[in-house]
Design a protein around this nucleic acid. Structure first.
Length: 285
DNA sequence: CTAGGATCCTGTCAGC
DNA sequence: TGCTGACAGGATCCTA
């Protein structure tokens, strides 16, 4: 689930609580979720948290870093005197832990714990020497984030994938970094671009609006994401849907477009569920 | 090199 | 109720 804003929210949240904490125990419930020996991180203290696109990096004071990727259903849940959770919204945020979806449990010396939950097991934690983080195959090939990219630069990158649908291309982290299925749909709606249009037909000015849209939808989500827990689990314990806070098309099939009133529809593009306003996002033009 | 489809895995939901 | 297939906030691998 987590796209850039969610991962950044997790980074900021954990930054409040775990730096300085010493890892006293590591339990791996699923082998493929922790790629490396636990001894690499045992006894080390957390010193920093970094983010590269959707990847989270936990730096330790023994020259080791843990590269984490939540993929579709990953969650990071910290439980101590304070509690914090982020990632794919689910009951795991409030349930007793570890539970059936807990893949890794990291216990700190003060008794607090960090749980890595991941229903589908696509995500992972991987300890590596800190100096090798930037050489990691995934991290080293990431394109700049929308804030570091001009419309012209995106336009030029699109030319390398002229024949592919624009949505598939902006989901490619080597083209532009940070967008996932939700924000791709939201950014395309913002720019009034139909997701099936070939990337080669996107004009320079459209690419400029698209980058702007990517920035805006993620910034708005970041503002809302900062209170993911507060909105997901309301004070009375009931669930909330924080997507409602910013989504204009995602998950709104059947509802009226806020811009023109037409009905939002869900289609399939590049193998992914895709939400559009058929009125605002035309195939040609 | 690109484009497109299958694949990893578990769980849920709609439709018999 | 039970079964089945589709689908899911990601990325990679394989094939043409």
């Amino acid at each position: 689930m987590p796209e850039l804003p969610e991962v950044e929210t997790i980074r900021r949240g954990l930054l409040e609580y775990i730096p300085g904490l010493k890892i006293s125990e590591v339990k791996v419930f699923c082998e493929k979720s922790f790629l490396g020996p636990t001894e690499m991180i045992l006894g080390a203290k957390v010193c920093d948290l970094r983010r590269f696109g959707k990847a989270l990096v936990i730096d330790l004071d023994n020259k080791v870093s843990i590269i984490c990727h939540l993929r579709m259903t990953g969650q990071m849940i910290y439980r101590g005197k304070q509690a914090f959770a982020g990632g794919h919204p689910s009951e795991s945020f409030v349930e007793k832990l570890p539970n059936k979806q807990t893949r890794v449990e990291i216990e700190f010396e003060d008794g607090s714990k960090l749980f890595f939950n991941d229903q589908r097991k696509f995500g992972f934690m991987k300890p590596v020497p800190t100096e090798e983080v930037l050489k990691d195959k995934f991290i080293s090939s990431l394109a700049p984030e929308p804030w570091q990219m001009t419309g012209k630069e995106l336009y030029e990158r699109l030319q390398r994938h002229k024949g592919a649908p624009i949505k598939a291309v902006i989901l490619d982290q080597k083209v532009i970094c940070g967008l996932g299925n939700i924000y791709a749909d939201e950014a395309l709606f913002f720019a009034k671009i139909h997701p099936e249009r070939k990337a080669g037909t996107i004009s320079l000015s459209e690419a400029e609006v698209l980058v702007q849209g990517a920035r805006e939808v993620m910034e708005r989500s970041l503002e809302a994401g900062g209170s993911t827990m507060a909105t997901y689990v309301k004070a009375d314990g009931t669930r909330g849907n924080y997507l409602d806070l910013f989504a204009k098309v995602f998950g709104r099939e059947g509802l009226p477009c806020e811009r023109c009133g037409a009905e939002i529809v869900k289609i399939r593009v590049a193998g992914r569920g895709t939400h559009i306003c058929p009125q605002c996002q035309r195939r040609e033009s």
